[in-house]
Design a protein around this nucleic acid. Structure first.
Length: 293
DNA sequence: CGTTCAACCTGGGCGC
DNA sequence: TGCGCCCAGGTTGAAC
């Protein structure tokens, strides 16, 4: 579920707990998938207990908590939480107690702030990883993640994907090319620029990459303003348990066989790289392919 | 280089 | 009702 806009919204929702000191750490359902938590829960808990939550940042689709020592004398550590499909960062009650993976009990020295942050993950595909400075750079640095989707330029996209023989939609999901775009927003971005998701990267012009980058920035920023996309029941929520609203502005994602808002033609669902792709066959064209008369 | 498949998981929805 | 199957916002590694 969570792509850039949802993870960004989670991070903003955690601002209210920055400054809190971690007084307890629990891993209620950590036995289900032990490798998803590194180092192992007991070690991780020992290393972060007593530290202060100094900052919350986003790296691509990860929430990164900066954890300083109490007196800030030593280097900070970073706890990276990757929600994958169903993970949520919450400062309120979870949808069910069943799938709570991590609880941080916090002390702010005041009462008007949430006293716990938790990671809830129904499917359990998410990961929790503690890094030092070098580890964070190795896992989430420029070698692993491309420029952030909110800031990516056409020049950067063309440099990373312009020679590729892949289709453009799966290419936009490649986090080394651009960080933060997932299945929903890749579809919405390509609809807004009128490009067929099957178009080969190397056939796209510099101008097309500029339009894609521009649409990526604006669609993602708009989705952040609408606090992400919530689809279905037990789905994405903000940290204080509200639903996002960007799903009402989806033009193609999840709209197979429904009429295109622009031309009325039925939206089509295909599969690319084992993922569903939605697009309008009339509004979205391939460079170099001839339109039927 | 690029694609395909399986795996990691839970649970909702659908056809029979 | 129940069973089996397909589907889902993501990522990784192996095989071809």
């Amino acid at each position: 579920m969570p792509e850039l806009p949802e993870v960004e919204t989670m991070c903003r929702g955690l601002d209210c707990v920055v400054g809190g000191r971690i007084v307890a750490v629990e891993f209620p359902r950590s036995r289900v998938r032990p490798l998803a938590i590194r180092p192992a829960p007991a070690t991780l808990g020992r290393r972060i207990a007593g530290r202060t939550l100094a900052a919350v940042r986003r790296r691509g689709k990860r929430v990164v908590l900066e954890l300083a020592t109490d007196d800030r004398s030593a280097d900070p550590l970073w706890l990276a939480i990757e929600p994958r499909m169903t993970g949520l960062m919450l400062v309120t009650e979870p949808p069910s107690s069943e799938h709570v993976r991590l609880v941080l009990e916090l002390d702010h020295g005041r009462r008007d702030r949430p006293r716990r942050v938790l990671f809830w993950d129904r499917r359990g595909l998410g990961t929790i990883t503690l890094y030092d400075r070098a580890g964070l750079e190795a896992a989430c640095g420029a070698g692993k993640l491309g420029p952030d989707g909110l800031e990516v330029t056409g020049i950067e996209l063309a440099a990373r994907l312009g020679q590729s023989r892949r289709a453009v939609k799966p290419a936009l999901l490649d986090q080394r090319a651009v960080a933060g775009i997932g299945n929903i927003y890749a579809a919405e971005i390509l609809f807004r620029v009128g490009i067929d998701p099957r178009s080969l990267c190397r056939r796209l012009s510099a101008e097309a990459w500029e339009r894609i980058a521009s649409a990526a920035r604006s669609v993602l920023a708009e989705a952040v303003r609408f606090e992400g996309s919530s689809i279905g029941d037990e789905t994405y929520r903000t940290a204080d348990n509200r639903v996002g609203r960007f799903q009402h502005r989806h033009r193609v994602y999840g709209r197979a066989d429904m009429p295109c808002h622009t031309c009325g033609q039925s939206i089509v669902r295909i599969v690319q790289a084992q993922r569903a792709t939605f697009f309008c066959p009339r509004c979205q064209t391939r460079p170099g392919s001839r339109r039927r008369p």
